[in-house]
Amino acid sequence: MTAKIAYGDIEVGTELPAQTFPVTRATLVQYAGASGDFNPIHWNEKFAKEVGLPDVIAHGMFTMAEAIRVVTDWTGDPAAVVEYGVRFTKPVVVPNDDEGATIEVSGKVAAKLDDNRVRVDLTVKSAGQKVLGMSRAVVRLA
């Protein structure tokens, strides 16, 4: 494991480069295939509305996968992530148009731990609303 960020260079409050990730219906179909999660709420508008959702929604695990990219792009080596957890609080609603939705992710170092580890707290939003809660990663730095 060879993270490119040194523990000694990091302070509590250090911000990670924020990123925005697009998600369209095509993205969800591709993710369904790759992940094996074919729940129709992620691709079938009629079904999603029948079960009370506003429209097709992204897989929670897709959003979770996008959010950690802010951390793995920062560390370089994805193996630097030793813990990662989220709470799924609001759905990412994905309309059937060319633009779809966007997932906005920012992160900052919330605590310095022992053994060169830091805790990164992530803020994950779509359409102005937080979609993940308690979104935290523990990362081992160089």
Partner: peptide, 10 residues
């Protein structure tokens, strides 16, 4: 069933 929380420790 809906997915509430997810966590991993590696």
């Amino acid at each position: 069933v809906v997915h509430g929380d997810q966590k991993f420790a590696y």
